[in-house]
Design a protein around this nucleic acid. Structure first.
Lengths: 347, 347
DNA sequence: GTAAAATATGCAAACGATTGCAGGAAGCGC
DNA sequence: GCGCTTCCTGCAATCGTTTGCATATTTTAC
């Protein structure tokens, strides 16, 4: 059997429905649009609905888009689709949006600024009703571009500096404070930090949280106690931790800005001939999938990615329906998940 | 500053370009379409291109779609977007498609049959030019539905029974044979298998591969040496492995149909008071991200997800451009990745 | 019973491109 | 210089909806 041509599924159009119901095209259109249905007499409307159903009519979203300049399509841009942290966020966004009748189109922004910009252009051309960004830097040109276009935008996981756009993030400072408190209570005093990139809000804020928590406990922060990783990747974490250990041989614990970095820290510890948690305790951040399966199972900070995704989607829907609404910033509370990478420090 | 309305980005239309160039709309359209450009005099065409550029014209894909019934959009349906195995496949598909001018819309099919069907309908309504499915069962109703609609489809990672659709998969039997050979060479003779669901091609074929490889080595297969997991999930793997160990206390090695199952096997081994790889060797399948970071680092079969994605995308493009072309089935060769979950068995 | 208001439907113009058809200009051979 | 191609460009229909406005019908108020 040869494959059939993709052309002419000769779908039934609104005109067919209208003709079959003996009404005008426009009447059928209104009867089938929930927000306009009240304009049509009940008997007529339900008759049309019945016929549409019988004929198997499906509204053509393309034609509708052309006319309305809306698409029921929301773009989601992530920095790296292969990064497990984002999977549950994306899944949650998709769920909530689709329940509200929106489809999502997920794109990998990648590193390249130009590519990202092209991507946004592409999505705008496709008339997305809004954009969820998980990529932004603290001061982000792409974001500005979107706002200039008047496109509804919501930020997720990472926020920017300005107050011009809605976002949902976790309280990154608080999260890192939880981590430090946990280490402190286990008896650690010489604590180091592998920070995330400072141009990303999570890296920046978690570092602040670290410094605050140390200060709150009256721990003087050795000048060398923080090393910033160049990216949220394992290799970067390993390099940073190696540097950290070299500078501070007395460290008994390390708080990493993210789980992948923490895994790099594991490596550096092993490379230095030490053992986690016996010699050095490690705490990560995000509780990404599989964080419990590494060795040792990672003590980390849970950020509730699904809730984050749901909230982001809800914010997006609200913004699309009410573009003038006030900017809303949702901040979720992180929580500590204790596993086996942290241990009591006997001194 | 209040957010601006999402309406009227007053983009410049083809009409504007045509007017500004002093030619007819249709001439401008042809000049700007690479496949029609040869119809227009070179001087005119390049003038139009120049003006379009200056005006910042962007073709409206929505309007084009309405007329052409094509969309330059390809749908990708995965069973579970949060499953790390699929991340690199999705990423690769997206890359290749976008290089060819296609956008992708990734959707999570989930378990529910009805939802999946609705999803496909939704994508068809949006006029996707094709569908890449990573979800299919060996005998899949959804797939049939797509084919009935005459939609170009390519299968990735999992294939179906029929020969009516292009696909790219790894040689699952060969992969499992690699695993068994490896164990055999390490001295193992009592080898068990945690199989994947039989209604999915990977589960079915890998199980066959297992049985073949055992037979080839002249190892009689104890009746109880294979237990089928109910799903590709850790918990299912743990349950299956527990059962397997109970039935076969003498097992020295287990080949799992997939990495997540293998992680479940780890658990079952620990729960039985045993240790991997000292008491029992384990080999996984897929080499998913982070497989090297678990403890012990997992010996597994690499399936080349990026290549798989690229090939799937290429197949899709070919099929869209030449719908009558013959069905093509790409089979990639898997390879063994030895880490620390397998050890020599001294008897 | 009539004017005003409300309700229900039809009309037709968009939205922004693509493309079959036809016609005009130029090129060619003789 | 004439007929015949060949090459370019314009015309106009079309894709399937949505929606402001006009019109017809009914209801309400007095």
């Amino acid at each position: 059997m040869p494959p059939r041509r993709a052309t002419t599924p000769q779908s039934v159009t609104l005109r067919d429905v209208a003709k079959s119901a003996g009404v005008h095209l426009s009447t059928a259109s209104r009867a089938l649009d929930p927000t306009k249905r009240h304009l049509i007499a009940d008997t007529v409307a339900s008759k049309i609905a019945g016929i549409a159903d019988k004929l198997g009519y499906r509204r053509d979203p393309i034609a509708a888009s052309l006319r309305t300049r809306r698409s029921k399509l929301v773009g989601v841009i992530v920095p790296d689709i292969a990064n497990p942290v984002f999977s549950p966020i994306i899944a949650a966004i998709t769920e909530t949006l689709s329940a509200a009748g929106y489809s999502t189109i997920v794109a990998d922004g990648g590193q390249d600024r130009r590519r990202q910009s092209a991507l946004v252009g592409e999505l705008i051309a496709r008339r997305v009703d809004g954009l969820v960004l998980a990529t932004v830097r603290r001061d982000d040109p792409i974001l500005k571009e979107c706002l200039r276009e008047g496109l509804p935008v919501v930020l997720v996981n990472r926020a920017d500096e300005s107050d011009s756009v809605s976002s949902v993030v976790t309280d990154d400072r608080a999260g890192m404070r939880l981590a430090v408190e946990h280490l402190f209570e286990l008896g650690h005093r010489a604590i180091g930090h592998v920070a995330g990139p400072a141009h990303i809000s999570t890296g920046y804020l978690r570092r602040q949280g670290f410094e605050e928590a140390m200060a709150a406990r009256g721990l003087t922060l050795p000048a060398d106690a923080v090393v910033e990783a160049t990216a949220y990747e394992r290799e970067a974490g390993e390099a940073a931790a190696a540097e950290l250990l070299k500078r501070n041989p007395k460290l008994t614990a390390i708080a990493a800005a993210n789980d992948l970095l923490a895994l790099g820290v594991y490596r550096a510890i092993a490379a230095a001939g030490l053992s986690c948690p016996r010699d050095i305790s490690v705490v990560g951040h995000n509780d990404m999938p599989l964080a419990d399966m590494v060795e040792p199972p990672l003590t980390t900070i849970r950020i509730g990615p699904r809730e984050m995704g749901h909230d982001a989607a809800r914010l997006m829907i609200a913004r699309i329906q009410e573009p003038e609404a006030a900017v809303k910033k949702v901040v979720l509370s992180p929580s500590l998940v204790v596993r086996a990478s942290t241990a009591r420090h006997e001194s």
